[in-house]
Design a protein around this nucleic acid. Structure first.
Length: 246
DNA sequence: AAGGTTTCCAACCGCATTCCT
DNA sequence: GAGGAATGCGGTTGGAAACCT
C-alpha cells in the first residue's frame, strides 16, 4: 500500500531558499524508486539530499533518500548475515564504545550502523534477556569476554580442524577486518584472551588459512553458537560469579 | 489450512551536530 | 557570531516473513 503525507521540500538554490509543499511518500522503497535514486546519485554524487529528493523525481524526503542510499543502495554495502569475525568485532567494540553504532560500523567494511544496531538488539540483547541480566551489565560483558568468546573460538578451531580440507569455508569475501590496537581494552591476566591484535590473532585463529584473513561467509553464525549448551554454560558461570562479580 | 505469535530488519522520528550564509 | 538548513546518529516502530499451535 502506498502511503503519502503532505510535506515540504526545502532546498537552497542560488542562495535562495525554496520551499515547496507536495505529497511525500513513506514506507518501503520500490525497485523503481531504487533505480531512480541510484541513477541520480551515480550521476550527481552523494550529498545534497534535499536536492536529490527534489530533482530526482522521487517523492521522498532528503533524509529518506540518504538513508536508503547509505543503508541499501550504496555499492559498498555488504548484504547477508553477519560473519563470525564481524560478530566478535561487534562484541569487542561495543564493550569499548557502547551504542555508538556508526563508530563500530567504521571498523566493519560494508556494514551499516543500522545493521549492527539491529544485530545487537535481535541477537545479543535477546541472549542477555535469556540469561536474565542486562546487556550492559558487568556480568553479561564479563561472561561474553572471559567465557563465551574464548569458548566460541575453541569451537571454531575445532570446526576448522574437523573440516576435510583442514580449512574453514570462507565464502567469497575479499576484505579483512582489523582492530586498531589502541582501541582495545587492556589485556587481563585472568583470561586467555589477549587483546591488542587482529581478531584472528587475538583468538588464536590462523589468519593465513584462507589467504585473506577473512573468517566470514561460512556457516558459523552466532545464532548457531547460542545453543542450549552455551546458554546453560553461561548461566552457570553467571551464578557461580554471583558473589565475585558486581 | 488457519490463526496467532515471534522474529527480524527497513525505515521513520526526534534530537544533536555540522555546515553555510 | 547568529541563525537556519543540512546532515548524522541512535532509539523506536511497523509490517513482512517465519515459526508455532
Amino acid at each position: 500500500m502506498e502511503v503519502y503525507e503532505r510535506g515540504f521540500f526545502s532546498i537552497s538554490e542560488s542562495g535562495h531558499q525554496i520551499e515547496e509543499e507536495m505529497d511525500v511518500r513513506k514506507g518501503q522503497w520500490t525497485e523503481e524508486e531504487d533505480s531512480m535514486l541510484k541513477a541520480y546519485v551515480t550521476l550527481h554524487g552523494e550529498g545534497h539530499w534535499n536536492s536529490v529528493a527534489r530533482f530526482s523525481g522521487l517523492r521522498r524526503t532528503g533524509k529518506s533518500c540518504r538513508l536508503r542510499w547509505l543503508n541499501y543502495l550504496r555499492p559498498a554495502v555488504r548484504r547477508g548475515n553477519i560473519t563470525l569475525e564481524e560478530q566478535l568485532l561487534i562484541i569487542q567494540l561495543h564493550s569499548i564504545w557502547g551504542n555508538r553504532w556508526s563508530k563500530i560500523a567504521e571498523h566493519l567494511p560494508g556494514r551499516t550502523d543500522n545493521e549492527i544496531k539491529n544485530y545487537w538488539r535481535t541477537k545479543v540483547q535477546k541472549q542477555a534477556k535469556k540469561l536474565e541480566c542486562d546487556v550492559n551489565s558487568r556480568k553479561f560483558r564479563d561472561a561474553l569476554r572471559y567465557e563465551y568468546i574464548p569458548r566460541l573460538i575453541e569451537q571454531i578451531s575445532r570446526a576448522k580442524h574437523e573440516s576435510p580440507s583442514g580449512q574453514l569455508t570462507y565464502g567469497n569475501e575479499t576484505e579483512s577486518v582489523q582492530v586498531d590496537r589502541s582501541l582495545l581494552p587492556e589485556s587481563s591476566s585472568e583470561t586467555q584472551v589477549t587483546y591488542g591484535s587482529t581478531v584472528a590473532e587475538t583468538w588464536g585463529i590462523d589468519e593465513q588459512s584462507n589467504g585473506n584473513g577473512w573468517l566470514g561467509g561460512g556457516d558459523y553464525w552466532m545464532e548457531s553458537e547460542w545453543c542450549e549448551e552455551n546458554i546453560w554454560f553461561l548461566q552457570q558461570q553467571l551464578y557461580d560469579d554471583e558473589d565475585t562479580v558486581i
